[in-house]
Amino acid sequence: MLGIFLRVWDDVYAILTRHNLGTTLAIGFILLMIAGVLISGIDPAFESPIDGIWWAWVTVTTVGYGDLVPSTTEGRIFGALLILMGIGLFSMLTASFSALFIEQGEEALTRREQENLKRIGHLENRLERIERQLERAIAALDRLEDRAGADDDPQHRKADK
């Protein structure tokens, strides 16, 4: 597992640093730990901080196994606030991931647009060269026609004789 994690660390780090995703996760985790310790002090249904942390984790993720449940009004109010925090946290995470995917799509689109602009620039240059060559060819043909017309002119022939 460690080998796999080390191979993908650069990608994970890039994802966590964008849009403060890592900061959001860290703050959420710290709040979850604090909430677990607090609930174990507020409500007698939780025998240890570990039970409180487990309950906070389950509550924040809105899974709610029901193996640990606050028994006091204060504990239930605290649980309701923790549920709201979990909904907010997951909303922020979803928004961060969405922004990340949209950003990646925009980067790909920008790259394709730049490639297309380069192609269009090359095509415009080729078209300008072709137009210049065509203008020179038309001018050369006009000169040839003028000479041929002058050679067919009877007055021109008399002047040559």
Rank of each mutant, 00 (worst) to 15 (best):
L31H: 06
E115H: 02
S40N: 00
H122M: 13
I120N: 06
R112H: 07
L68M: 02
A26V: 06
W55L: 03
K118Q: 03
D152P: 04
G41Y: 09
T59E: 12
L16S: 07
D151T: 01
F97R: 02
R147I: 06
D153R: 01
A14T: 12
R129A: 15
Q133M: 04
T24M: 09
H122T: 13
T59M: 01
I138Q: 13
V63T: 14
I42G: 07
T73D: 12
E103N: 02
R147F: 01
L141G: 13
N125Y: 15
I77V: 12
R119C: 12
A140S: 15
L123C: 10
V63C: 03
W9G: 06
T23P: 06
E107S: 11
G149T: 03
T62A: 06
Q133Y: 10
G105P: 03
R112I: 00
G22D: 09
I138R: 03
T73P: 01
E47H: 12
L31Y: 05
I27A: 08
N20W: 05
T61M: 08
G64I: 04
N125R: 04
Q133N: 11
E47F: 04
R143H: 09
E106Y: 00
E106Q: 01
P49Y: 15
A80I: 14
T17K: 05
R7H: 06
D146Q: 10
D153K: 00
A80G: 01
A26T: 10
T17A: 09
I42T: 02
S40F: 11
N20L: 10
V63W: 03
H122F: 05
Q104K: 04
W55G: 04
I130W: 06
N20I: 08
I138H: 13
I50K: 05
I83H: 07
L93R: 04
G121S: 14
I53F: 15
L123A: 10
L68T: 00
I15H: 09
F5L: 14
A35E: 09
F97C: 00
G3Y: 09
I77Q: 12
T23Y: 03
Q133V: 10
I102W: 02
D152G: 02
L84Y: 07
W9P: 02
S91M: 13
T73Y: 01
R76S: 11
D10H: 12
E124N: 11
G64H: 14
A26R: 05
I138L: 03
N20S: 08
I30E: 05
A95L: 14
G3W: 04
L134S: 02
S48Y: 14
R143Q: 15
R76C: 06
E113N: 05
G149Q: 05
T17W: 00
A108H: 06
S91P: 04
M92C: 10
Q155A: 04
L82D: 11
G22N: 08
R111F: 00
